[in-house]
Design a protein around this nucleic acid. Sequence first.
RNA 1: GCUCCCAUCGUCUAGUGGCCUAGGACACAGCCCUCUCAAGGCUGGUACAGGGGUUCGAAUCCCCUUGGGAGCGCCA
Length: 465
Amino acid sequence: MVKTRFAPSPTGFLHIGGARTALFSWLHARRHGGQFVLRIEDTDLERSTPEAVNAILEGMSWLGLDYDEGPFYQTQRFDRYREVIQQLLAEDKAYYCYCTKEELDALRAEQMAQKIKPRYDGRYREYKGAPREGVEPVIRFKNPLDGITVIDDLIHGPITFQNSELDDLIIARADGTPTYNFCVVVDDMDMGITHVIRGDDHINNTPRQVNILEALGAPVPKYAHVAMILGDDGQKLSKRHGAVSVLQYRDDGFLPEAVLNYLVRLGWSHGDQEVFSLDEMIRLFDIHDVNKSASAFNTGKLLWLNQQYMMEMPPEHLARHLSPHLGALGIDPSDGPDPVDVVREMACRAQTLKELAEQSAFFYVDPQSYDEKSAKQHLKPEAATPLAAARERFAALPDWQPEAIHAAVAEVAEALQLKMGKVAQPLRVAVVGRAASPGIDVTLQLVGRVAVLRRIDRALALLAG
RNA sequence: GCUCCCAUCGUCUAGUGGCCUAGGACACAGCCCUCUCAAGGCUGGUACAGGGGUUCGAAUCCCCUUGGGAGCGCCA
């Protein structure tokens, strides 16, 4: 059975690159009816934080990437790592190395100076002497000295490494704690991981891990190394790019399904299709179809996708998603039109929930000021007549429905020999505060007659000076 | 420096030797629709990094160059 894992280290939030790796792993498992496990790689006690763990868990749950096992924490598996290390030691597949950090640094500096690849020279590999005084030894893995290790990468195809290029890596520190490359191997083995999908910055670690796996007599999983994601500017993703945490996207008003859809298309495609439901992704996703090259994150396209999702989503759902963003603006929708009706009209006019809330605020609160340009253009002295005429008709309308409102506006235009725009635009600015909104009839209907009359009066007062 | 990876429009990508005078999407421009802004529809411009091969034929296969990136930790 297929079993994949996502194994972030909790030294920061779940960023967009990690989220895509998680998505690919999740998709691969789901697609094959397998299992997906979450493992927190927190062996770096210095840099791991509980806040980061929470951020990762929260990010996963917001995206809806559920796991069948875990979260496992490597810090809770130290006994198991120690056990495997002892086994390796007993089988002469690992050994104590008494080099000090200073000696290692010196060796590295020397090699760099000679312009050769810095690496451990194996000086304690066959050491049979007594433990060196005053040095807490580390434990190193005995990497094969010759031969080749081939990774048959699902994305890249075969990648060949000379074992002679690999040195004897440290699997346990002087304080006895195990290191990353070793823990990964033990965990992948114990957890029965069949497919390792991860960033391509791990390609160079893979032959070492394969060699350890083989020393342990464990089956070697299939590997798939996914290229990294670049920032909008094509540069490596960094703090400078702003919203790098997936939770930031949530707060900025993106829908998780839009983010997922955007992410899956970064490096993967299915012909010309751009929009995929979750079910389609699961059905269509194939790790073999993933691109080898890095791709740049394009916020513009995410924005477009997010809007597509907002427009397609049932208004009832959209309204629910909108409510926290309305709340953030201090708006209580119960004071005005049903958000479901608002959202039906506004979804095609905003790209994020946050923007949707901002654009929709006028339905609930009178504009605090008029957009300068719009007011200058439409709230001119000559607008007073149509505004007043419209106000009069509105006040007398027997029923406050779009059809009636539209007819009233048209009548005013005709009576005054004006084009529709000369009536609708001043009305719009007076009621909305700016020159952009849904059709004037629905807009006014939703705002409500009382508020509309009040806002017109205010504009009229302003025009009267 | 050494090892490994990568290379089609500005961006995401289609393309696995002929269907490619290179297709789609985002963005951009124009037009249509129109009471505004959107949405939607239509139209347009822009790409196979360079050089060698292989082949009747190369975006597709091979080599080199160039340019990016990663790794070379008692970090993950």
